[in-house]
Design a protein around this nucleic acid. Structure first.
Length: 273
DNA sequence: ACTTATTCCTGCGTGC
DNA sequence: TGCACGCAGGAATAAG
C-alpha cells in the first residue's frame, strides 16, 4: 500500500517523466473514486502543461498552468504508471488515463479509496484535504519539542496519536507499530505519560524508519517503471508488523497483537514498556 | 470540543 | 472445488 515513502517514490518517478509535458487528452472511466470525479473540471486541464510536482503527507500535488493543480491521494491500492502510449492496453481498474505526447499516465485503483481533485486556488495547501495536516516527519519541524507539545494533554493511546495526521503526516499503521517497537514504547501507552526521553526516542525512530523505507522505495520505482511494483518490498525490514505469535527478533518472546482504534497493532511486551 | 465508530471497496485467506 | 464470510487499509464523516 502506498505510504509516505512510496508516494515520495511515485513523485520522483513522475517528475522524471511528465514535467513540462503537455496534456493532450484525458479519459475517465469511472464516476466516483473516494469522491465523485468532476469530469467537466477535468476537461479544463487538457492542453495544460505540468509545471511542478510536490508531496504533502500522502498526497501528490501536480501543479499545472493557469493556477490549476491536481491533488491526488492513492488511498490504499492506487497505482500510478507511466507507459508509452503505443504499449498501453486497458486493464481492470484503470480509472483515469492522462495522455501526453508520447506517454500515458495510468491511474489504477482496485479498491477505489484514492481520489483525484482539481484545485484552482493559488494556495493548494489550504485545500480542505490538506489544511489540517501536521508537520512533515522528515523535516526539522518534527522534533521532540513539537511532539511533546502535541502529546502534553492527550489521553489518546500513543499509537493513535502518531497516526493522527494533525500530529504528524505519513505515519501509517505499519510504521506506527514499527516505530514504537524501535523506541521500546508500548502502543497502548497514554500519550501524556511519555517521558521527554521516550518522546525523543520515538521522534528519531519515526524518522529513521521512514528514511529506510524511502530507500527501499527506490526499488519500487524500478518495478513501477517496468511492469507492476512488487508489494511488500519493505516487509523484510519489519520487526513486529504482521508477526503475531512469532518470536521477537531481539528477545525471542512472542509478538502480541491487539486491535487499537480499529487497527491491528503488533508489539513485544518484553522489549516495549 | 473531544473521542470513538462507521463507511467506502475489492481481493485474498480461511473454514465449511 | 466452490461458496460464504471476514478482514485489510486511510481518513472523512457520523455518532457518541
Amino acid at each position: 500500500m502506498p505510504e509516505l515513502p512510496e508516494v515520495e517514490t511515485v513523485k520522483n518517478g513522475l517528475i522524471s517523466h511528465i514535467i513540462n509535458k503537455k496534456i493532450s487528452s484525458i479519459k475517465i472511466n469511472i464516476d466516483k473514486l473516494r469522491y465523485a470525479i468532476d469530469k467537466d473540471k477535468f476537461s479544463e486541464i487538457v492542453n495544460l502543461k505540468v509545471r511542478e510536482i510536490q508531496r504533502r503527507g500522502k498526497h501528490l500535488i501536480i501543479f499545472l498552468n493557469d493556477d490549476l493543480q491536481l491533488i491526488v491521494h492513492l488511498g490504499m491500492s492506487g497505482v500510478i504508471k507511466i507507459e508509452s502510449k503505443k504499449n498501453y492496453s486497458f486493464k481492470k481498474h484503470d480509472h483515469i488515463l492522462i495522455e501526453f505526447e508520447e506517454e500515458i499516465l495510468i491511474y489504477n485503483d482496485t479498491r477505489r479509496f484514492g481520489y483525484w481533485l482539481i484545485n484552482n486556488n493559488k494556495a493548494p495547501l489550504n485545500h480542505k484535504v490538506l489544511v489540517n495536516h501536521g508537520v512533515e516527519p522528515l523535516t526539522e519541524d518534527f522534533n521532540s519539542e513539537y511532539l511533546a507539545r502535541k502529546l502534553k494533554n492527550s489521553s489518546k493511546k500513543i499509537k493513535q496519536a502518531i497516526m493522527d495526521n494533525s500530529t504528524v503526516v505519513g505515519v501509517g499503521n505499519i510504521y506506527a507499530s514499527e516505530a514504537l517497537f524501535k523506541s521500546n514504547i508500548l502502543p497502548t501507552r497514554i500519550s501524556k505519560t511519555l517521558s521527554k526521553k521516550e518522546i525523543t526516542k520515538l521522534v528519531h525512530a519515526i524518522k529513521e524508519i521512514l528514511k529506510i523505507a524511502i530507500e527501499q522505495g527506490g526499488t519500487t520505482l524500478k518495478d513501477y517503471k517496468n511492469t507492476e511494483g512488487k508489494p511488500g518490498y519493505f516487509s523484510q525490514k519489519l520487526n513486529v508488523y504482521g508477526r503475531a505469535k512469532q518470536p521477537c527478533y531481539i528477545c525471542k518472546s512472542e509478538i502480541k497483537s491487539e486491535v487499537i482504534g480499529q487497527r491491528n497493532t503488533y508489539f513485544c511486551t518484553k522489549c516495549q514498556k
